[in-house]
Design a protein around this nucleic acid. Structure first.
Lengths: 221, 221, 221, 221
DNA sequence: GATGAATGAGCGTTCATTCAT
DNA sequence: CATGAATGAACGCTCATTCAT
């Protein structure tokens, strides 16, 4: 390995060091008042170096959040697809929620970056990354839904709409597990994950069939 | 009306003026950099006067958010309860989402105040107000679910769990309508509200009955 | 007593109430950040009323300090003058220092008001009051010194100079007893008062006679 | 001289520049309302830079005062010790008072920093510095007194007590020369310094011998 | 490329004082 | 005369970002 190559590796490695140091410092309620100085100290590098890797402090927030979701996607894409669509969707929920729970240190920064105004105030590169992320999720779940309908495992209905319903349910459940994280016992959360997954499954199965349901019919009309 | 009484009225009115002026200024992506000076100017009062009504700038955020939710509760509590539980729940969703959509100027500040770390850094009074709000929502929906089960309109299951499922779905859908607000056409959102409401209804009806569902059974085992 | 007269009395009484309330609040290290609001609350009157009695917050400081010194003068003027001048001077020291010690709550404000720049930034009335105070002290002690020299109890020398020496010693000892107040035991301070009084007496007796002192002679030449 | 070394030198030098600029601005009765902005402008540096050297505005006051006293100690320690103790003590007074007179620009800030409540509201570092200063003065004078007693130049008595008497006299005389500075003619002050020094000498010589003095005896009994 | 000293715009907050009632 | 709500100038301090070395 030549000197140039090693330098490049060092450089790339440093980005992870900065993100790691930041994440550590961000794991407290006062995380918003963590300074760039503190991050530089924790990462054991000069303050100026941080700006060689990130164009602003907010970009650190964004990159952390993106990395978190990249990790999630990786886990979701590894889920065994050779089962019924419902099983797959159920596992996606379970895996995703456990993924969130296993990394509570991302709670604050991820919640912060979800805000509309946060996303809007960023470089095109970051904006694109967030959008690409969305589309990868959309495709992942969309494909499962399409396949499920083809195989008659899921009542046929508008895929895009069904995807939005699942996403809605998913976003809400992330909020719930993370917001409740410090207050609830582990057992409650595990149970919650089980139930919300079932709720989602029931929704997916029921949505296309609602007109056949006696009780719902009244409401729909 | 005595002089003292008028003064008191004026004083109380001014709180609304401040909140109104703030809300106007907060309706843009750069809302976080709106200064207290700007708010005072917009409200046509002295800066010091603001601090007679709010102990800090963040308390303005909190009060706006609380007021928004008070308004929501008021609307929800006005919903006609003399119908099937499913119809009532469906209306709650519809009314709530339309309420959010009709006041997009609250989007940013409300999203901002939902963060865990925001809630923790506040006076006991504010914290209590947020908690009380939660409990009013919980009771409102909880009562409907209980009644629904008694009347066999909803499959019997754990009310608390079912409430969390609905809340999950609701929180997620608020995110969706608000985040998507500026990008989507009105028609899409109206359709979304219809579908997500149905999804929720399907979830509520299906959750307690999942073991009778052929497809879901496979997943559950 | 007529109504007008009573009103006048009430009004005059209120000045003392304000000063008393202020003094209470000023008896802590953070005394400089006590606000006019706090004083008004403690005095159980409206904030505006304070400004009917004092033209500014600093005037409260000044009035408190003046009152303190008026009280001191009163005590000093009550000292029995029918004894040797040395005894009288010694008593003045003792009485004055005990007076300071017995009212430590005046420490901070009095020290604060002694500053050159404080005295300069005041109304003519206040400035005059401080000057008049100085001159009353000067006369009190000056007369004793003059009488003492006439009665040959004190070596003849320049009275004004001797007065300044005594004042010097006195100012310094006030600093010492007040600064040391919280650190020293009561017994130390009582002993200190005894010793410093003797030192002053020795100075008064020795100053006019220094050329007759073998050791001092060397220094003087 | 390497680049790093020069940078360090520049940095250290800037502290003096800030202190110098502050001192200039502080030489007027309104000195307390000099702002950090004004100091930065006068020092021709950015406001933030000031906070790289001083943790607060009050620390500037403290550092100025400390520097002033360091300079005094340096002068006092340079006084020729090969003479009678009385001569040395006399010189200490003279040198110290002239030192104060020669730098009247320190008057206000030094007087301000002497206040009890000022000293209490500071970092441990600053508090220690003030204490260390006290102890250096105490040792300097204490040693001279001890030696003087050994050589029978000063009547034997309690050294600590005698030190406090001298310090008392010294503190008071500093007040006098500085307070009077702007009002008195130069000649008066020079005379005052001569007289107060003699008074102090008389006190030191007389304190231990007071019971042999006919006039004082009456007072003591 | 790495550094970290310098920067200075910017902001929230305070509080003595005023004055209409 | 008493009040206390309104005021707004004033200020200390922060900290993300830059850039000369």
């Amino acid at each position: 390995m030549g000197i140039t190559e090693r330098k490049k590796r060092d450089f790339e490695h440093r980005e992870q060091v900065i993100l790691g140091a930041s994440l550590n410092l961000f794991d407290c309620d006062e995380w918003l008042s963590v300074t760039v100085d503190q991050i530089a100290d924790a990462a054991e590098i000069g303050k100026g170096t941080i700006y060689k890797h990130f164009s602003s402090k907010e970009e650190i927030y964004a990159k952390l959040t993106l990395d978190f979701y990249y990790g999630l996607l990786e886990q979701l894409e590894r889920i065994d697809q050779n089962r019924s669509s419902i099983s797959i969707l159920g596992d996606i929920f379970k895996v995703a929620l456990h993924y969130h729970l296993s990394q509570p240190e991302f709670r604050r920064v991820t919640q912060y970056c979800k805000r509309i105004d946060f996303k809007k105030n960023h470089s095109e590169e970051i904006c694109n990354a967030f959008e690409k992320l969305d589309s990868r999720f959309r495709n992942l779940v969309g494909d499962i839904l399409s396949t499920g309908m083809e195989k008659n495992e899921i009542p046929r209905t508008n895929v895009r709409q069904l995807y939005y319903c699942m996403k809605t349910c998913f976003d809400g459940s992330v909020d719930t597990v993370w917001t409740g994280y410090s207050g609830l016992e582990k057992v409650d959360i595990d149970e919650y994950i089980k139930i919300i997954t079932q709720f989602m499954v029931a929704g997916v199965l029921g949505l296309g069939d609602l007109e056949n349901n006696q009780i719902a019919k009244v409401y729909l009309n």
